[in-house]
């Protein structure tokens, strides 16, 4: 077990190392002399030289990478080329917002997905089931940015139920979180539905029923208990999709999280921020996957670790 954990953590380090090289190269491959890009069309050669020196852009790629990595490992992510402020500060201002958005989205989608899944699973073949299936199939086919636009159009503009721009209140968070969670809700609902259908066929359900237990109790006892780990896996696997979705959702709602910062840093060619954002986002994906795997290993000690 310890060996397995060590092996997995080691794998993560290698992956993150490769990721950091990717990220670093991505930024260097962007066409244009970075200093000139930062300063704009009217920059004088003197200013360009200053900036080139200041950001160490005259050094070799290897040296630049080492300096950057050293900084990153020491918690110094460099300064944003757009605002001159430390990237850490810029990201810190927005990180919490995206986490909040994602947490709201995960919470509602898991709860709603579970309810819809059980509802349609226990009534398989009836109209309730078809409604549930339709909702979950649609949830995976509707682009989140379009869903967001439609939600704004109907709920904010026509019905005035929510503020147009998320204003930090809970009411303002409802629509962005709803939009962002729609896809995950569908995934959870589909999973729960199939678990319920399967469980209802199993022997223990029949036995339990024979014993006079209510079907509802059986489902709650067995299905829900057994679903915790798979649902966590789904969350882990879908987190990447959700982070991508956050870029779109934040753009639609003008919600200033790291997704919007990512778009801004591309728009204003703020490469220090861009590379740090991509690194952080991929680190989250890798770390969460590791956590899920470890959790799996702890819960199911019988799986083979090879």
């Amino acid at each position: 077990m310890t060996k397995y954990i060590l092996k997995r953590v080691g794998g993560i380090i290698v992956t993150m190392f490769l990721v950091s090289i990717f990220v670093f190269m991505i930024i260097r491959l962007i066409p244009g002399e970075p200093a000139r890009l930062m300063l704009g069309d009217k920059a004088t050669p003197e200013m360009i030289e200053t900036i080139t020196k200041q950001y160490g852009l005259d050094k070799s790629y290897f040296e630049q990478y080492m300096i950057w990595m050293k900084g990153v490992l020491h918690g110094d992510f460099g300064n944003s080329q757009r605002t001159g402020m430390p990237v850490m500060y810029e990201i810190g201002l927005r990180y919490g917002k995206t986490v909040r958005l994602a947490l709201y989205a995960i919470t509602w989608s898991v709860i709603a997905g579970t309810i819809i899944g059980i509802w349609s699973g226990t009534r398989a073949g009836k109209w309730q089931d078809y409604t549930g299936i339709t909702v979950s199939v649609l949830g995976q086919a509707v682009p989140d940015f379009w869903l967001g636009m439609m939600a704004i159009m109907i709920l904010c503009v026509k019905l005035h139920l929510f503020p147009i721009i998320p204003d930090g209140t809970f009411r303002g968070m409802v629509l962005p979180a709803f939009t962002l969670g729609a896809y995950m809700m569908s995934t959870v609902a589909r999973f729960m539905r199939s678990s319920v259908i399967e469980a209802l066929k199993e022997d223990y359900t029949r036995t339990a029923r024979a014993k006079g237990l209510k079907e509802r109790t059986v489902i709650y006892k067995h299905v829900l208990r057994n679903s915790v780990i798979p649902v966590i896996t789904i969350i882990g696997m879908q987190l990447g999709v959700m982070l991508g979705g956050a870029v779109l959702v934040e753009s639609v709602f003008g919600y200033s999280g790291i997704g919007l910062l990512l778009l801004d840093s591309i728009k204003y060619r703020d490469y220090t921020t861009l590379q740090m954002l991509i690194l952080i986002i991929s680190f989250h994906v890798v770390a969460i996957n590791l956590l899920v795997d470890l959790l799996y290993a702890v819960v199911n000690p019988e799986i083979r670790y090879d």
Binding site: I30, P31, G32, E33, R36, L37, G40, D41, R269
Partner: peptide
């Protein structure tokens, strides 16, 4: 063209 490309190949 991308703005950066133009800066490099026209302005500079």
């Amino acid at each position: 063209q991308e703005g950066g490309f133009l800066t490099d190949n026209v302005n500079a």
